[in-house]
C-alpha cells in the first residue's frame, strides 16, 4: 500500500548570486524517489542538502534542471508534500500554542477545530510529547520544539514527508524512538520519506537507499541500496555486519577516501 507519486530530480543545478560572485552549490543532480520509499541524503555541511530539499518541496526554483512530482513540475509547494525544516525553532509560530502550531496547516485545509486539535494531540503523543499542547513554543526545550515541528509534519498527513536534520537536537533515546516512528509510519501508511541527515548510522538505519552527496560543486557521489528489509530494530539491525559495511562505505565516500572493498571493512 503506497500513496502519492514518484519524485524526480533531473539534472538539477543551483547557483546563488550572479556574475563573478556566482556560487554554484548543486551541479547536475539527478535522482528519483518512488512512492513508499525511504531515502536518506547525507553529505558534508554546506554541501547543499537543505537547498536540495527546498527544491524537492517546491520552495526554491533551481537555476536549471527540474523537479517533478509524478508528471507535475514542482514550481511551488504541493498538497501532497510535508516539509519539516532544519530551522525548527524559527519555523514554529511563537504566538500559537503548541497544539495550534501542529494543527495550523490543517486549518488551512478547512478542518474543524475539534478535529484539528485531537489530531494534533495524537501526533504530539506519537513524537513523545504529552501534556505540552497548551504551552507556547518558547516554554519547551530545543529538542521538544524539534519534535513539535515533526508532529506538525505528521499531522499534515501527506503522502510525501521531507525532513531536514529532523532529529539533530533530541536526546539519544528519543532519537531512536523517532527513527523507529519514522520506519513504522512508512510501513503502516505507505508514505514516502526523504530524510536529510549528518548522521551516517541514521541514514543507513532509516533508508532503503542512501544518497551520498559530495564534491564542489555538489553532485551525487553514489547511491547505495540498503538491503536490510523493512523490519528493522535498533539492536539487531545495527549489529548486522551489512549495516557496519554500509556505514563504512558511506563514511569513506564522504571523506573522499578510496572506496575500501572486501570483508575486512566490516570490522573496522
Amino acid at each position: 500500500m503506497t500513496r502519492g507519486s514518484s519524485l524526480y530530480v533531473e539534472d538539477l543545478c543551483m547557483a546563488f548570486g550572479q556574475g563573478p560572485q556566482e556560487h554554484r552549490v548543486l551541479d547536475g543532480l539527478s535522482l528519483r524517489v518512488d512512492p513508499g520509499e525511504a531515502v536518506c541524503v547525507v553529505g558534508p555541511s554546506g554541501a547543499g542538502k537543505t537547498t536540495l530539499l527546498r527544491c524537492l518541496a517546491g520552495l526554491a526554483r533551481p537555476t536549471s534542471g527540474q523537479v517533478r512530482y509524478g508528471e507535475l513540475p514542482l514550481i511551488e509547494p504541493h498538497d501532497d508534500i510535508a516539509v519539516v525544516s532544519q530551522d525548527y525553532r524559527g519555523s514554529l509560530l511563537p504566538w500559537m500554542r503548541v497544539w495550534d502550531n501542529v494543527a495550523f496547516p490543517l486549518q488551512g485545509r478547512g478542518v474543524k477545530k475539534a478535529v484539528r486539535k485531537s489530531r494534533a494531540l495524537e501526533c504530539l503523543e506519537a513524537v513523545g510529547l504529552q501534556d505540552v499542547g497548551d504551552k507556547y513554543p518558547w516554554q519547551l526545550s530545543g529538542g521538544m520544539q524539534q519534535r513539535v515541528a515533526i508532529a506538525r509534519g505528521l499531522a499534515y498527513d501527506a503522502p510525501v514527508l521531507l525532513m531536514d536534520e529532523p532529529f539533530g537536537s533530541v536526546d539519544a533515546q528519543s532519537r531512536f524512538d523517532l527513527e523507529d516512528l519514522t520506519l513504522r509510519l512508512r510501513r503502516q501508511l505507505g508514505i514516502t520519506v526523504v530524510v536529510v541527515t549528518h548522521d551516517i548510522d541514521e541514514a543507513v538505519y532509516l533508508g532503503d537507499r542512501v544518497i551520498v552527496l559530495g564534491g564542489r560543486p555538489t553532485a551525487v557521489l553514489e547511491t547505495l541500496t540498503v538491503p536490510l528489509g523493512t523490519d528493522r530494530d535498533q539492536l539487531s539491525t545495527r549489529a548486522d555486519p551489512r549495516f557496519a559495511e554500509l556505514r563504512t562505505r558511506v563514511l569513506a565516500l564522504i571523506r573522499g577516501e578510496k572506496l575500501p572493498t572486501g570483508p575486512e571493512v566490516a570490522h573496522q
Binding site: A57, L59, P77, A82, V83, D87, R89, S91, P105
Partner: peptide, 14 residues
Amino acid sequence: CQAVHETVRGYRIP
C-alpha cells in the same frame, strides 16, 4: 521572519 514565511508557504496556508 524567513523561516516562518517558508513554513507557511510549504504548508500552503491560504
